[in-house]
């Protein structure tokens, strides 16, 4: 899936560069930009773990990442702004229990979810037909852990979701091409937060644990400059 997305993005980029010439204008005249991003978030490290030794195994799978950003020029090629983002990563229930597990009657879960509010600093490099940019972000994320409900022949395994707000940061880079006031581009980067959740086991004993929820992101965006 990752390979297919990468290929799609590369073709898109090629398309932008080839067909850009007729629509070129001087975007430096625009001082503000609103950007709408959609892409995939691919868990890394502890977040993607299916390790039996974890206190609470996340089983996070790749999922969608949506972001809306505002950026305003604050210097030559330097932009400051803010991003509101939503990231959703489902649990891989087939790793928790195989599809044909004789003990399991039913299984369901609600996904991991993070809502990001980030302050951004972006630096743009002029290209012939657009811009290459690097962006750093810092802020907060309201996180919700995944919930789990598995009915078995010997009882129910139920783990409730928990919420926690934690510091979040990101770094990304990308390219975009100008079409007068509109831009199209792609962006790749990392987004991370480390909330503390409460895990309650079948005996009712609670444990607090910190989980690094880090994803590598890859997506496309459309932008409007004014």
């Amino acid at each position: 899936m990752l390979l297919r997305m990468k290929t799609t993005f590369l073709y898109l980029l090629l398309f932008f560069i080839v067909f850009k010439a007729t629509a070129q204008s001087d975007s430096s005249a625009h001082t503000s930009q609103i950007r709408v991003y959609f892409g995939g978030a691919f868990p890394k490290g502890d977040f993607q773990s299916s390790d039996f030794e974890d206190t609470y195994t996340p089983f996070a799978m790749s999922g969608p990442l949506m972001q809306v950003s505002y950026a305003k020029a604050i210097g030559r090629n330097l932009y400051g702004g803010a991003t509101l983002g939503l990231r959703i990563n489902a649990m891989d229930l087939d790793k928790f229990a195989e599809e044909n597990d004789e003990l399991v009657l039913s299984k369901k879960s609600r996904p991991w979810q993070s809502v990001f509010t980030l302050a951004d600093a972006e630096y743009r490099f002029n290209l012939t037909d657009g811009y290459f940019f690097v962006k750093g972000s810092a802020g907060a994320a309201l996180n919700r852990s995944a919930s789990l409900h598995v009915e078995t022949t010997y009882g129910t395994i139920a783990q409730a979701a928990d919420k926690n707000t934690a510091f979040a940061y990101g770094a990304s880079t990308g390219l975009f091409a100008n079409f007068d006031k509109f831009e199209l581009g792609f962006e790749t980067g990392i987004l991370s937060t480390r909330p503390e959740f409460k895990f309650t086991d079948a005996q009712g004993r609670s444990t607090n644990y910190k989980l690094s929820m880090t994803t590598i992101n890859l997506g496309i965006f459309g932008a409007f400059s004014f």
Partner: peptide, 10 residues
């Protein structure tokens, strides 16, 4: 890895 067993329901 038997996660059903690890989270023993009964």
């Amino acid at each position: 890895d038997d996660f059903i067993s690890k989270n023993c329901p009964g």
